[in-house]
């Protein structure tokens, strides 16, 4: 009975995190982006500096009519948002935020593989949406999504493999247990490659070619309205949470910190994740969108070689220190 309660509690906590963190990041994005552009951002909703803007947005989305285009493939069109969203919920289960068994939703033996595999599945949602909309812009968006995923999955996997080599395990808590501070400079190239590739996989600016609103309206999500559209947006922001959490766990040492690692480890994890989320927003504000061919080129001619070099470096150092 106690076990069941424990599992239920963990699931509940993960679910609450899944629902709130993306909103917090979304609100931060509103405000940070506004201030980086010399604006104030939302100021009215909720009274104090527009803190409830996203709640208001959610209410608005929920009120809208759920439209399915006449020419669309109905079932797949309606299923796509769920396929896009759920993988991130699953991934969130496996990310440890503190030391010990208690601070992770579910210990997965091959955590790195689980996380990357399930994240890759999320892209299927965009593909399904793009195809099922019966819209040229959507199809183009879906195609670009697929091309982007194929290009960036590889460097992501390779750099994650580099960390797994360094730690000698593919379990996320195991990697954290093995972490030492000097991994930071050792794996820095891998960290950058992983983060950039993750951004590209999430289709965040400057890698938002698949949704490039000035050319293909909103890519695969063009035909979506109301709650389903909101689910896609939620998937994007949940993706940010997951990517930042993963980068924290894999490369930045998760709950390790200069002090207070015992009781306050989770604070470190959250702090690092929040910092990375800020960087995600910062990059979005700063850089213009990459063109499709630049996007492919960046992956194949820069990130993949860099990640291979990182793996080689990891291997060499690993052999030397043994």
């Amino acid at each position: 009975m106690n076990d069941a309660l424990d599992v239920a509690l963990r699931l509940l906590i993960v679910f609450v995190v899944f629902l709130t963190f993306p909103l917090i990041i979304g609100q931060t994005e509103h405000k940070v982006m506004a201030h980086m552009q010399g604006r104030l951002g939302p100021m009215y909703a909720g009274g104090f500096h527009g803190w409830a803007q996203l709640v208001a947005d959610g209410v608005k989305f929920a009120q809208k009519e759920d439209v399915v285009p006449a020419g669309a493939d109905r079932r797949i069109f309606q299923l796509a948002p769920a396929v896009a969203l759920l993988p991130y919920l699953l991934v969130l289960l496996a990310i440890p935020i503190g030391p010990g068994e208690g601070a992770v939703g579910e210990v997965v033996d091959a955590g790195v593989f689980f996380v990357l595999a399930v994240m890759g599945v999320g892209v299927l949602g965009s593909l399904m949406a793009g195809w099922a909309s019966a819209n040229k812009f959507s199809l183009l968006g879906g195609l670009r999504t697929a091309a982007q995923l194929l290009a960036y999955e590889l460097p992501m996997l390779l750099t994650a493999a580099s960390v797994a080599m360094a730690a000698g395990t593919v379990s996320l808590p195991g990697i954290l247990d093995a972490f030492e501070w000097w991994w930071l400079p050792w794996q820095i190239v891998g960290a950058i490659v992983f983060f950039v590739a993750g951004l590209a996989e999430l289709q965040r600016p400057p890698f938002d070619m698949p949704v490039a609103d000035s050319e293909i309206i909103f890519g695969a999500y063009t035909e979506y309205t109301g709650l389903r559209f909101a689910l896609f947006l939620l998937a994007e922001y949940a993706g940010i949470v997951v990517l930042c959490g993963l980068t924290t766990v894999l490369f930045l040492g998760g709950w390790h910190g200069p002090w207070g690692a015992d009781g306050l480890g989770w604070v470190w994890t959250l702090l690092k994740t929040a910092l990375l989320a800020f960087v995600v927003i910062w990059l979005r504000v700063t850089y213009p969108r990459l063109r499709e061919d630049q996007l492919q080129k960046l992956s194949w001619t820069l990130l993949v070689p860099l990640s291979l070099a990182q793996i080689a470096l990891t291997g060499i150092v690993k052999v030397v220190i043994q």
Binding site: V32, A34, H35, M36, Q37, G38, R39, L40, W282, V285, T286
Partner: peptide
């Protein structure tokens, strides 16, 4: 962008 963020907004 970071510098702009720390400046006063023009809104």
């Amino acid at each position: 962008t970071l510098r702009t963020m720390t400046k006063k907004t023009v809104t």
